[in-house]
Amino acid sequence: MKPHRYEEFRDLHRAGAPLLLPNAWDHASAAALATAGFRAVGTTSLGVAAAAGLPDGTGATRAETVRLARGLSRLDALVSVDIEGGFSECPEEVAALAAELADAGIVGVNIEDGRPDGTLRDLSHQCEILRAVRESVAGGLFVNARTDTYWLPGAGQAPETGERLDAYRRAGADGVFVPGLRDLRIISELTSGLTDTPLNTLHAPEGPSVPELAEAGVRRVSCGSLLFRAALGAAVAAARSLSVSADIPSYAETQALAGAFA
């Protein structure tokens, strides 16, 4: 664990100037983002899963996630890893995974409460998992507790969101994450009740702008799977037209990503 890196990452979650966190799906995409000047880079569970030919959100990509994380720890960047729901229902096993990632040099993890069957994990059990993780990595890993109240069909949304965020904060989460939430009024209400716990939202092209989210109190804006999906779309478009953007990396530049941070 490297407490100074944890502290640096934590301090990037600023009021009025939220951390814009791009999400990578492999070593090359993360290295490209770091080379472009992004100090912090996240991973996208959808991108990691789809790139491996596996489904997202089902706990099927533990090995791929850990392997990628170990490689990304070589980068000169602060890396936060999406570990879905922790790849286990056992708090001790999730805590052991978090400690393994922290020891490898990872500075943050996302842990979600959405389950593969489309329901939310029991609140008390999710808090038990968060407490176990917090105890295993005290001061060395930024724990971002995600609730899927606005992500899963039919979930509780506004009333339950506040209850879960408060419980996760009290269980030791460094930050809280509500993907799918775009209502600035509700965002403002949530941030006003979170005191010093940063709220993370997911960027959506059709949603509020980063300045609007900052005004509402958001301190971190993630890209999620957006970049991965954009890359897929660009690849198909380039194949169809045999035309590419003028700023596409050269062969040599791309090759250099593999060893630039070794």
Rank of each mutant, 00 (worst) to 15 (best):
G57T: 13
L68V: 04
A230R: 09
E112L: 00
S243M: 06
F177A: 03
L78K: 05
I106K: 05
A252V: 12
T195K: 12
I186C: 04
T61R: 06
E112H: 00
R5L: 11
S250E: 07
R5F: 00
G16C: 13
A171E: 05
L46H: 11
V81Y: 07
G217F: 02
G154Q: 13
W151F: 15
A69L: 08
E128Y: 00
S241V: 00
G172Q: 07
T65I: 08
H203M: 08
R74L: 13
A31Q: 10
E84M: 06
T44A: 10
R220K: 10
S88T: 09
G172V: 13
G207L: 11
A234C: 05
A230I: 09
R121S: 04
G57K: 06
A216N: 07
D122W: 02
T43Q: 09
L97Y: 00
A216P: 08
A15Q: 12
E64S: 09
Y168G: 04
S209A: 12
A24H: 07
T119N: 10
Y168R: 08
R169F: 13
G16N: 09
A102Q: 02
P55V: 04
F261E: 02
M1I: 02
E92R: 12
R182G: 11
Y6Q: 09
G154D: 11
L184C: 05
P153I: 13
S250K: 00
A171R: 03
A99D: 02
A50Y: 15
E64K: 13
V81M: 12
N110F: 06
A40R: 09
Y6K: 08
R229G: 02
A28Y: 13
I106M: 05
V176P: 00
E112Q: 01
D76P: 01
G85Y: 15
V143E: 03
T195H: 13
D117V: 01
L72E: 08
T119R: 15
T58A: 11
T254S: 14
A104S: 03
L123F: 11
D76Q: 13
A132C: 03
P159N: 11
G53I: 09
P153M: 15
V79T: 14
R240N: 06
W25N: 06
T61P: 04
G105L: 01
C127V: 01
E215C: 05
A52T: 04
L181F: 05
S209Y: 02
A204E: 13
A50W: 15
T197M: 07
F177W: 11
E64R: 14
P208L: 11
P55S: 10
L72R: 12
G233Y: 04
S73P: 05
K2F: 13
W151M: 14
A260M: 14
G224F: 08
E135S: 15
V81G: 06
R229H: 12
P249D: 03
I129A: 02
F142R: 07
L226W: 12
A98C: 02
I186M: 15
L21E: 06
H4L: 10
S209P: 09
P159Y: 09
L78M: 12
S222R: 02
V66E: 15
A60T: 09
L20A: 12
L46G: 03
Q255S: 11
